[in-house]
């Protein structure tokens, strides 16, 4: 774990975006995004639907192309060619709202696929790694089942384990609890909290404000494709500066 100590001492951020802009035709989806995430930092991204928060984290692993600006991930400058894109995707894990487990593969196979095909691990190594991580998300007893046989919460935990099997330097969460039944939200959040406590660099798009309070180092609020406000959670919730932030918080906290 020497590497951890070394990179912790460097000042270079794990993820940085500067001047990123994206259009869908004439519609500006991202407007001059600048942000920097240090190693081990936890960011919660929130904002009304259509504010560009999902688009933003999907640019970081280039599931969405962007037209302007630069993105650096783990020291790699994300270009538009497939070489750096693949390199970045190997370094950054992503968890989706709809889980996106592969229905024709067992839980174990879901976790082994990418380490074998993308990192070149052999079968024994990949299985070893997969079982360890399934243990960590407390689902190892379901390893031989297929996704359709699991509950939503279990599926999402498998999806987290699948991403972790790539030994990523950072994790992106795209509304990981929005598609879950209420009683399953907690098990997924607990898994994410445990991951945060282990020091993973995380960017989470979520409306779970309790999670934000407990885990986030910073909360970033977006609206209309731009970053409106960012602050540590205590300040963000108690003393929001912008009118739009206040309105958003009023709606989202008032509802719960």
């Amino acid at each position: 774990m020497n590497q951890t100590i070394n990179s912790a001492t460097t000042t270079e951020p794990m993820i940085s975006l500067s001047g990123v802009e994206k259009w869908y035709g004439a519609f500006k989806a991202l407007d001059n995004i600048n942000m920097s995430v240090a190693k081990g930092e936890k960011i919660v991204l929130c904002g009304p639907s259509g504010s560009g928060k999902s688009t933003l984290i999907r640019c970081i692993n280039h599931l969405e192309a962007y037209q302007k600006g630069d993105i650096h991930v783990g020291g790699i400058m994300l270009g538009h060619g497939s070489k750096t894109i693949d390199a970045v995707r190997r370094e950054v894990g992503m968890v989706f709202q709809q889980f996106n487990l592969f229905p024709h593969l067992t839980v174990l196979q879901n976790c082994m696929l990418a380490p074998m095909r993308s990192l070149g691990l052999d079968k024994a190594q990949a299985e070893d790694r997969a079982r360890t991580l399934l243990e960590r998300v407390k689902i190892s007893e379901q390893a031989e089942k297929y996704p359709a046989q699991l509950s939503g919460g279990q599926q999402q935990r498998v999806a987290i384990a699948r991403a972790l099997c790539m030994r990523p330097k950072a994790m992106l969460f795209d509304e990981p609890t929005s598609a879950l039944d209420p009683e399953m939200v907690k098990e997924v959040l607990d898994t994410m909290i445990a991951l945060a406590e282990e020091g993973m660099t995380m960017i989470c798009v979520t409306h779970e404000m309790g999670f934000a309070r407990q885990v986030a180092d910073r909360v970033i609020f977006m609206a209309s494709g731009a970053i409106v406000e960012e602050a540590p959670p205590a300040e963000f919730f108690s003393n929001p500066k912008h009118e739009r932030t206040r309105k958003f918080l009023g709606e989202i906290l008032g509802r719960h």
Partner: peptide, 21 residues
């Protein structure tokens, strides 16, 4: 669904691998 494609890409697989696997 598009999500299957994206999940494969996000795991660092190539397009051809995503299609085949």
């Amino acid at each position: 669904s598009k999500g299957q494609m994206e999940a494969g890409l996000a795991l660092g697989l190539h397009k051809a691998q995503v299609f085949r696997l």
